[in-house]
Structures are given as C-alpha cells and as structure tokens.
Design a protein around this nucleic acid. Sequence first.
DNA 1: GTTAGTGCAAACCTTTTGCAGCTCT
DNA 2: AGAGCTGCAAAAGGTTTGCACTAAC
Lengths: 158, 158
Amino acid sequence: MAGTGIQNSLKERGIRLTRQRRILLDLLDRSGRHLDADSLFQLAKEKDPKLNRVTVYRTLTLLKKGGLVDELDLLHFKGDQHYYESKLKQEHAHVICLRCGKVEEFFGDSLQRLRKQVESSLGFSIVTARTELGGHCPDCQSVLAQEAAEKNAAEAKA
Amino acid sequence: MAGTGIQNSLKERGIRLTRQRRILLDLLDRSGRHLDADSLFQLAKEKDPKLNRVTVYRTLTLLKKGGLVDELDLLHFKGDQHYYESKLKQEHAHVICLRCGKVEEFFGDSLQRLRKQVESSLGFSIVTARTELGGHCPDCQSVLAQEAAEKNAAEAKA
DNA sequence: GTTAGTGCAAACCTTTTGCAGCTCT
DNA sequence: AGAGCTGCAAAAGGTTTGCACTAAC
C-alpha cells in the first residue's frame, strides 16, 4: 500500500494511521474536486459503511491543525460548509462563477507578490493565504448578455 | 436625519427604510470594527431593545444580495460566524494575526493586479474578491521568538 | 389601503463534545 | 499494555423559515 502525500507527512509526526484515516486521506489526496465534510463522508461511506461522520470532522480538524490542508469556503456559493484541499499544491486563488458555480484555480505570480507586499508593509509574517474571487465565467457571460438583449427587445416592444 | 452611504443606495432601489434598518445600516456604516451578526445584534439592541435577531439576518441577506456589503470570515479565527463591512471602501485584503486575533487591512496595487490577471487569464469577469491572509503580527513575532529561545535554553539545561 | 417588513417560535444544518468501547503500535 | 481513536447520541452554534401582526409608502 503506497502512502500518498499527506499520509507520509502524518507518519513523520507520529500520528496513528487508522483504517478510517487512510480512507479519508486517500480521498483528499486523490479526489480532483473540492470536498466538503459531507461529500467526503459520503465517499468514505462507500469504502467503509461504518465510518462515522464525526470521524470525518475529527480528521479534518487534525489536518487543519497540522497545516496539511487548506480550508476554503468558495464564497459560500452553495452554503456555509467548508471545503478542504491538500496543501501540497502550489499556492493558488479560487475563482467561482456566481451563476453556474464552476470553480477554477488561478496560479500566478501576483499571489506571491501580494504576500510579499503585505509582509513588508505590515510587518506580518504570513503563514496562510486564502484568495477567493467571484464573477462570471465566459459561458455565463454569453448567456447573461443574451438575456439582457432579450429583455431590452421585450421592453422596446412594450 | 442624514442618510449615510448605504442608506442612499437602498432608497434608490425602492427598498423600505424601516426604523430597524436605519439602526442596522447606521451601525454598519459607522462602526469601525468588523461586525458579525451577533455583534451587530447586540449593538442594535442598545438602540432598540425590541429589535429581533432575525431582522439582523434578514437585513444582512438583503445587503449581501444588493452587493452593498462584503462578507468575510477572517479565516474562521474566532469561529464560523461571518463578518460584514460596507462595500463603499476601496478593495482591500484582511490580514489576521493567528496568535492574538488582530485584524489589519491591506490596501495595495497587488490586489487590482491580481484581479486583472485572473480576468485576462481565465476570461472571468470578476464581481467580488475576498483575500484573507493569516500570520503573525510584529508583536506576536517577538513573543514567539522569546518563547522559542526560552524553550531552547530549558532543553540545553536538561 | 396595500404590500413589504417585523417579531416570535420553531426548525434547520453543520459542526462539536462526552463517554464507553475498540484498535493501532 | 496503553494511549490514541472511533462510534454513538446528544448538544451546540449560527442561520433560516412559517405565520400572524404591524408599519412604511
């Protein structure tokens, strides 16, 4: 059984690798999606129907404290739940379409530049960063433009 | 009675200005702090003891939908509540000290640059942006350095 | 006079906690 | 063996909803 990214980090800290944690960590490491606690719980139940929702929360808390995952909320587009992703990836911003809910990731040097500007101007040492932008994706921009045009046409007729 | 920033915006949209809303809007406009629903409710109760918590939530929802306030969560440092601030101010990032909870605001051109980079690279039109950074403020950096030094000294003695 | 807004109570959803029993090392 | 972890049930915290009454326009 190959330990994946997060799992190795945990072993190094002497944290017990239980069957339940293995399942959850595999899912977090491998799933491409941004998972919230409930989605993670649903996926985990498929692999172990006995696994309890509480264990999901406790594992997520553990990973947060260990700095192994980032917590997002994607601008609360879908509700108040939090989303989690492995912190192994390079720093990136999340860009959410406020019409269709699509989430894109943005990697770019402006993020590092922002962090450095904040450190030098406020004297903080930055540990974690979360950048979430909301707007309209190209597809939804077209649809919205179309709808606006139709609305104008209807008003002109009336 | 002078209508303040947000209040004028609402009038223009034909939304009723009730006594309760006036109180809440005044507080949001004037309070320097970042208010969550409960703090806002506590402050509002001082001005009108009958004002109900639910009205606070409904007003905040209204303002969010109207794009008149930004919703923050300050990295959930204190809990899962949301914070609100009038959107009249220039775009800025929030920087939270993860040790003492102090919140600073950062205004700088990297924010606009980031927004533009995202728009041009992903083709999104950005409507709203939220940037929250966590780290240690200068004061807490000193304290932490001090604590680390003491810990090292203790270990050397043992 | 109408329609929107308020207060109250109760529901809701997500997350946390207490505790007894189980399991990883 | 023993500390750490899990499951279950129950609570907590923050927010939303249904409905009858009230107030703004």
